[in-house]
Structure formats: C-alpha cells, structure tokens
C-alpha cells in the first residue's frame, strides 16, 4: 500500500509541479544589531515569556540551586552540580528509567545546551535530559545555563551542532502555557508549571 502510494505521489508531483526554477535564497543571520552581552536581553525575553531567573547570591549557583530545592518534595536531577540523595528525596536520572517514572517529580533540574537571546528560549537535548520526559513531566523545572552559551537569535540557534546531532532537541521558552479558553493565560497546561534559569558555567561542579 505504502510503496504504491509512494510511487503515485512522486509521479503526481513530477507531473504537476510548476515548471519554474526559483532559487533557494540564502538566509542572513540578521545579527547586526545584536549586543555584545546577550545575557540582559535573554533575561528580558525569558521573563516576558513567563520564565524567571533563579538568582545566585555570592556568585554561588550551586548554593542557590540547593536552596531552591530543599524541602520541595521529589527532585530529579540530570546535572553533575546536583547529586542524587535519597535522604533528601533527590533522584539522579539514569538512562534505564522509564519515561513515566518521572511523573511524581516536583522539580526537575536539567542543563541547557544553549540559550537564545531573541526569545529567551533554552535548548534541551536528549543528551542533557538523559530521559526526555525530564523536561516536561516534573511540575517545575530549573534549567542550568552557561551564560557564555547564549546565541543572539534563532538563526544562530539553528546553526548550532546540537540541532544536527540529537534525536530530540527542544527550544523551551518559559513554562508550558495555554490560553485556549477566552485567552486567559494559564501556566502549566500539560508540561511544567514554572521554569527558572540558573546561570551556571558548565565547568562548575
């Protein structure tokens, strides 16, 4: 069935395709106005999109992270900055976990491959997430982002190697949201109810 359909579809395309040869245009990067420091514009957009920054006092992001998760229920982590600790209800996400095993998690802690200043998005990939559902099944998400890994806009984002190398990559921008009833904005439609970004260089342990 599928093979016949394939043949029929390609034959129909070749028979009906308009007989013109318009070129494929080059896509500029549109980055001439991009500021040198992309962090402030990233933060502005992140907040506009419903996310927030998890402030690190005394330049100690790991301490800030610990403070943010303490006594908050079940925590799942896939970052080396936060180790699993059953006594603190912190689970380390391992590749052998089933996707739905993360459904009872209150806060997921993940690292972004990079951020996008234009939209305040963070890029999460299957490598960082280990189990893909870590990005959306927890109630809340804390995303570690190296401030050096912010690109100016989506044109730069799509040039990143992650977009070619991963089976799953998502630009997540703020929390899951819906406004399907009369335009009333609700955070936490089906995915995470909140998203906080913690600036944290990738080398920090």
């Amino acid at each position: 069935m599928s093979t016949d359909s394939r043949t029929a579809i390609f034959a129909a395309i070749r028979a009906n395709r308009p007989n013109i040869q318009p070129p494929l245009p080059d896509v500029p990067l549109f980055d001439t106005d991009a500021p040198a420091d992309l962090v402030p514009s990233f933060v502005t957009m992140l907040e506009k999109m419903g996310g927030s920054v998890l402030e690190a006092k005394n330049s100690d992001p790991v301490a800030a992270l610990r403070a943010a998760i303490t006594d908050k229920g079940i925590i799942a982590t896939c970052v080396p900055e936060l180790h699993g600790d059953p006594s603190l209800q912190i689970r380390t996400i391992r590749p052998d976990m089933t996707p739905t095993s993360l459904a009872d998690v209150e806060i997921g802690v993940v690292r972004a491959a990079f951020g996008v200043a234009e939209t305040g998005s963070v890029c999460l990939t299957d490598d960082e997430l280990i189990v893909n559902t870590a990005g959306f099944l927890p109630q809340h998400l804390i995303v570690l982002l190296d401030p050096k890994q912010i690109v100016a806009n989506l044109h730069h984002a799509y040039n990143r190697p992650e977009m070619r190398d991963h089976n799953y990559a998502v630009f997540q921008t703020g929390p899951s949201a819906t406004a399907d009833i009369e335009g009333v904005l609700i955070h936490g439609a089906q995915g995470v109810r909140s998203l906080r970004v913690l600036f944290c260089p990738a080398t920090a342990q």
């Binding site: 999109m49 590749p95 305040g120 991963h166 799953y168 998502v170 630009f171 929390p175």
Partner: peptide, 16 residues
C-alpha cells in the same frame, strides 16, 4: 503575537 511557542521541538529519530 508571541515571539515563539513555549515549545519548539525537534525530533530527528526515535528516543532511546
């Protein structure tokens, strides 16, 4: 009128 959807998801292959 939103700069981007909250999720822009890229699937290149099956999950593990």
């Amino acid at each position: 009128g939103s700069p981007i959807t909250q999720y822009t998801s890229h699937f290149r292959g099956p999950r593990k």
